[in-house]
Amino acid sequence: MMQNNNFEHSVKQLRKLSVIIFVFFMSIAAVLLYIMVDPTLSAFTPKPDSTDLVVVNDDPNENFDKIEDGIHVRTGFVEGEGLMTVVNNCTNCHSAKLVTQNRMNKEGWKATIKWMQDTQNLWDLGKNEEIIVNYLATHYAPEKKGRRQNLANIEWYELKE
């Protein structure tokens, strides 16, 4: 009986020990696994204020040619017939800003296109030329400014002595 008791006791001890060892190694494995996926232990460090972080949209093409308040956001061109033809032909070499800050009639825009073709390597626009010229002469037409305009957009402020 004594022998039997001793044997049972040893088995119990052995089982206990193996459970402890198992739990110990599992814990180490868990820690190691965590360190593998989060080497900087970022979950335990205070989280930075993330409100200013910027992420990119999952789909890079989504909203690429978004129009907001009648403006093609990416270029600043106004929405209108022929917009994408203008975007695709007139923003490869120079910024859209060079177009949108100018005002010309059909003849002026045509002459500008010809100048770019003669001297700046602009390609033959084919049927697109009419679409482009119509768009530009409609949305970027000259305004009559007279010989001197009133001062505008004055931001008033108090000037201390």
Binding site: S50, T51, D52, L53, V54, V55, V56, N57
Partner: peptide, 9 residues
């Protein structure tokens, strides 16, 4: 250009 505020969720 697509920007979005990173939200806490």
């Amino acid at each position: 250009m697509n920007r979005r505020k990173f939200n806490n969720y």
